[in-house]
Design a protein around this nucleic acid. Structure first.
Length: 293
DNA sequence: CGGTTATGTATAG
DNA sequence: TATACCTAACCGC
């Protein structure tokens, strides 16, 4: 998926283009017909991202909980109030940016297009539309259930009131490798496979090191760098972790990351070939020199 | 056109 | 640890 930064961009977008609007909700694909009927005609009050989950709060104690999973994505279109709205979700290539959607920001908006492909949910306001494809989770819950779902998540580096000490104490109290813990959404909410690899490289920490062997300041460094990287991700709409110097003058898209998906290629800092291994069913990447342990 | 791949998670065993 | 979920782009034939 789409790591946490994408979900925060989505929540912002829903808040700016749909909040306060009455929405027609449907499920062109049919798999969400019952849930769509519950929401149809409701007014969107607010949108919130916590980690990789998004909560769209409607009036009448109705909340649409969406988790994009590995392949989910939203696309948008509409009149001038939708200017800048992009398709946000699972990119298909490393470093890919969000794609402008068909008629987002059109000066003459004539309503939503015929649904293309498997559209699980379609939201339509007087000003535009949003289509959701391929989510892992998509359900209508209550505000109380939203609170319960959020209580199962760890602190989100992108929420200003998140408590870094909660993350630090969790990660340092378990012998589980730090690279496994960073993918555990109950430890820190929003990190995915790219941020895991990149933040551990930047902090010079081997993914296999047990959490208990991290000093508090090392865990705090992981948190602080994750906040920085994910804020950059929200701003850019892509995960760019390399500095211009590390890219050696090359464009961001050709060298966006230090280690992610660079198996066998030379480390951008020391030239040592990047290693990869399976860790908790996902590929982890690291530089054996810069992240000796 | 079929096989592969993906920034994720839940569940079974 | 393995598999299911179930979408779309990409690649090789």
């Amino acid at each position: 998926m789409p790591e946490g930064h994408s979900v925060h961009r989505l929540a912002k977008q829903f808040g700016s283009v749909f909040a306060g609007e009455q929405l027609a909700v449907s499920s062109p694909q049919g798999r969400f017909a019952a849930g769509a009927a519950l929401l149809d005609g409701g007014t969107l009050l607010s949108a919130l991202a916590h980690g990789k989950q998004m909560f769209l709060r409607f009036d009448g104690d109705r909340v649409l909980r969406v988790h994009l999973g590995l392949y989910g994505a939203w696309s948008f279109g509409g009149d001038a109030t939708f200017r800048g709205a992009s398709s946000i979700g699972a990119p298909r290539r490393v470093g890919e940016s969000e794609q402008p959607t068909g008629d987002a920001g059109a000066s003459t908006y004539a309503g939503p297009p015929e649904p293309v492909g498997a559209v699980r949910v379609r939201l339509v306001s007087p000003h535009g539309w949003a289509d959701l494809r391929g989510p892992t989770a998509c359900e209508v819950i209550t505000a109380a259930e939203e609170q319960a779902a959020r209580a199962r998540l760890g602190p989100d580096p992108l929420q200003p009131d998140s408590d870094a000490t909660v993350f630090v104490s969790k990660v340092t109290s378990s012998i589980t490798p730090v690279g496994v813990q960073l993918m555990n959404q109950a430890v820190i909410a929003g990190i995915g496979n790219i941020y895991r690899a990149e933040v551990l490289f930047l902090q010079g920490i081997n993914p296999w090191r047990p959490g208990k062997q991290l000093r508090d300041d090392e865990a705090g460094g992981i948190w602080a760098d994750t906040v920085r990287l994910m804020k950059d991700g929200v701003r850019e709409g892509r995960i760019i972790t390399t500095t211009p110097e590390a890219r050696n003058g090359r464009p961001k898209r050709s060298a966006p990351n230090y280690v992610y998906k660079r198996t066998g290629e030379p480390c951008r800092r020391c030239g040592t070939p990047i290693l990869t291994a399976e860790m908790a069913a996902r590929n982890v990447y690291w530089c054996p020199q810069c992240q000796a342990d």
